[in-house]
Amino acid sequence: MLVNADFSRRIVVTPDQYNWVASPQSGVERVMLDRIGEEQARATSIVRYAAGSHFPDHAHPRGEEIFVLSGTFSERDEHYQAGWYLRNPPGSIHRPSSAEGAVIFVKLRQMHPGDRHRVRIDTRDPAFWQHQGRREVCPLFSSNTEQVCLQRLSPGEALFEGQIDGAELLVLTGNLVVGKRSCDRGSWVRLPVGDCPEIIAGPQGATCYLKAGHLADWALEA
């Protein structure tokens, strides 16, 4: 299965374009943002857990990255509310579930094989945020192959200046204008290597998840 698998193209998916598809597990649906493969796939998705739904124990050979968007997401007896960022490194095993229901942003099979970092960050905690010029930034993870953070932009502030080395973002609050396209909360954008995007925060400002550096190898393969 191929979904938005051409990494040389700019991709924008807004919430009105969401196509919810049932997963093999009862009560769990997903929106496939990009995907290469079938059930064992390199994939980026929005995943929705109905109340009481769960997966059995399973492994992630190439890792899993999660940001909780709403509700409470659980792994056995650990419970994560909206705003938590999680990284389960390659080879990790977990049993995800949600008693009350949850929506999460998930990236599968996209970590470096040598990554051994298990990360748990509550981005609602002000201690994780720092000022960088006009904006606030919450660093989530950084390595030689990827940089992940949340960025809180002031109204009218540009997210980038000039050409970028590929990036991916998810609008968490507010609004971003990408070129001439309005992207509200829940919009996902993937920007190819060498793009010069004009992305401006709307009149209420915006907060977004931002990941960079991870698309260079895929650009070479495209």
Score class of each variant (00 low, 15 high):
residue 136 E to F: 12
residue 140 L to V: 11
residue 109 R to L: 06
residue 108 L to Q: 15
residue 89 P to Y: 09
residue 126 P to W: 07
residue 143 S to C: 02
residue 146 E to R: 05
residue 108 L to Y: 12
residue 146 E to V: 02
residue 140 L to H: 09
residue 160 F to V: 10
residue 84 W to D: 05
residue 162 G to N: 07
residue 94 H to A: 10
residue 118 R to V: 05
residue 144 N to Q: 12
residue 103 V to K: 07
residue 138 C to N: 15
residue 85 Y to V: 08
residue 124 R to D: 03
residue 102 A to Q: 04
residue 112 H to F: 03
residue 105 F to K: 09
residue 146 E to F: 00
residue 127 A to T: 14
residue 83 G to A: 08
residue 85 Y to H: 07
residue 129 W to R: 01
residue 133 G to F: 07
residue 141 F to Y: 15
residue 94 H to K: 06
residue 101 G to E: 12
residue 146 E to T: 01
residue 155 P to I: 05
residue 164 I to S: 12
residue 162 G to M: 08
residue 158 A to I: 00
residue 160 F to D: 11
residue 114 G to Q: 14
residue 124 R to T: 15
residue 126 P to Q: 13
residue 85 Y to T: 00
residue 132 Q to L: 10
residue 86 L to S: 11
residue 144 N to H: 13
residue 149 C to V: 06
residue 158 A to F: 01
residue 118 R to T: 08
residue 148 V to T: 13
residue 129 W to K: 00
residue 95 R to F: 02
residue 158 A to T: 13
residue 100 E to I: 07
residue 101 G to S: 10
residue 88 N to L: 11
residue 147 Q to T: 14
residue 103 V to F: 01
residue 139 P to S: 01
residue 114 G to A: 13
residue 162 G to T: 09
residue 120 R to S: 09
residue 94 H to W: 07
residue 114 G to H: 12
residue 134 R to E: 12
residue 128 F to S: 14
residue 122 D to N: 13
residue 94 H to V: 09
residue 88 N to I: 01
residue 116 R to N: 11
residue 85 Y to C: 07
residue 105 F to T: 11
residue 163 Q to G: 01
residue 163 Q to A: 15
residue 109 R to W: 15
residue 95 R to I: 05
residue 136 E to A: 13
